[in-house]
């Protein structure tokens, strides 16, 4: 065995896009592979839990963990990796703030399970079987099935184990991954807890910035499919809910470059504790109406407030989650 540093990749409640992002390093991945030994990467390589359990504590230099945490299995895995790793890097916005899966916190666990296993129109489940840690007799051969327990709440990685660094993004862009890996291998890491992306909002990198007027006076919120989007003009000024002003930069304004508004996947800057509350203050203070009825009329065009404002960070929101009655 070589003496190259050991690196692990793991996924929790995620879509797989973060692993794809590692592959997106393209030829860059060869440099990484040359410099390190990958000891775990479920999406690409065949390692078992026992392999990791067999390793000495702290023997892995860094574990990159993506996805949010919502099952007993995920908790076991991230605790194990924490124990075996010198550094844990939260990889991507689901690990960082709960991501899209955290929008499940808008519903109670019971509501979710009831719908998915019982009331969903495409289901046939007359005996109302629900999978879980309690063994359930399988319909066919009588063998018992268990599944990890689904938690009440979808959590970010740092709500379960200590996290050393964060790579934001849905997924993190090759540029910030490469920069992080480079810093890591050269030993030039910033203070622990740092999000490895500029702590400035995205407007800073957006070439449409100069076309943003000082006074927006928003009279209506529009969604991208409802209009022809001017490819040069500030998207917010066009009535699109662009989150650039409240979102950390580092992606080089990929979405605005692609003529789509920023949805906020890099999360808030370090100075903002609750992104949704912040955007409410920021954007809504710019709507054109003064009278309650007129304000309501404009707000009616604001699509899915929680899903829009907390799209990637609901686990970190002060709103927390819905509880069972």
């Amino acid at each position: 065995m070589s003496e190259k540093p050991k690196v692990a990749f793991y996924w929790c409640a995620a879509c797989g896009g973060c692993d794809e992002a590692v592959v997106d390093l393209a030829e860059g991945i060869l440099d990484v592979v040359a410099a390190v030994d990958i000891v775990l990467w479920p999406v690409a390589m065949d390692f078992k839990k026992a392999d990791i359990e067999a390793r000495p504590d702290k023997s892995i230099l860094v574990s990159f963990i993506n996805g949010s945490i919502r099952s007993s299995e995920q908790v076991e895995w991230v605790r194990l990796l924490r124990k075996k790793s010198q550094l844990v890097i939260s990889f991507g916005t689901c690990a960082g703030g709960g991501g899209i899966p955290a929008l499940a916190n808008e519903f109670s666990r019971e509501e979710i399970l009831k719908y998915v296993y019982e009331t969903c129109p495409s289901n046939v489940n007359e005996s109302k079987v629900r999978p879980g840690p309690t063994p359930v007799a399988h319909n066919g051969d009588g063998s018992a099935l268990t599944l990890p327990e689904l938690h009440e709440q979808v959590r970010s990685l740092d709500q379960v184990v200590a996290v050393d660094y964060y790579l934001p993004g849905c997924p993190p862009t090759p540029k910030i991954i490469a920069a992080a890996v480079g810093a890591l291998l050269s030993g030039k890491m910033p203070p622990p807890g740092t999000v490895l992306s500029p702590d400035k909002a995205l407007c800073d990198e957006c070439r449409r910035k100069d076309s943003k007027p000082a006074d927006l006076s928003l009279a209506e919120f529009k969604r991208p499919h409802q209009m022809h989007i001017d490819p040069e003009k500030c998207l917010l000024a066009q009535g699109l809910l662009c989150m650039g002003g409240s979102t950390r930069s580092g992606c080089e304004a990929l979405c605005p470059e692609g003529n789509m508004p920023c949805t906020g996947c890099f999360g808030p800057t370090s100075r903002v504790r609750d992104k949704g509350a912040k955007v409410v203050s920021a954007i809504l203070s710019n709507i054109a109406a003064d009278e309650p009825e007129a304000i309501d009329k404009i707000l009616d065009t604001f699509p899915d407030p929680v899903g829009t404002l907390y799209r990637y960070g609901f686990s970190k929101a002060m709103l927390r989650r819905k509880q069972d009655d």
Partner: peptide
């Protein structure tokens, strides 16, 4: 304003009731 951190989005400018903010 935290000058280094400000991204220049101008959101604050029309809101100041005392016109104390300029760009």
């Amino acid at each position: 304003v935290l000058e280094e951190e400000c991204c220049g989005c101008k959101n604050c400018i029309p809101l100041c009731p005392y016109t104390a903010i300029s760009f």
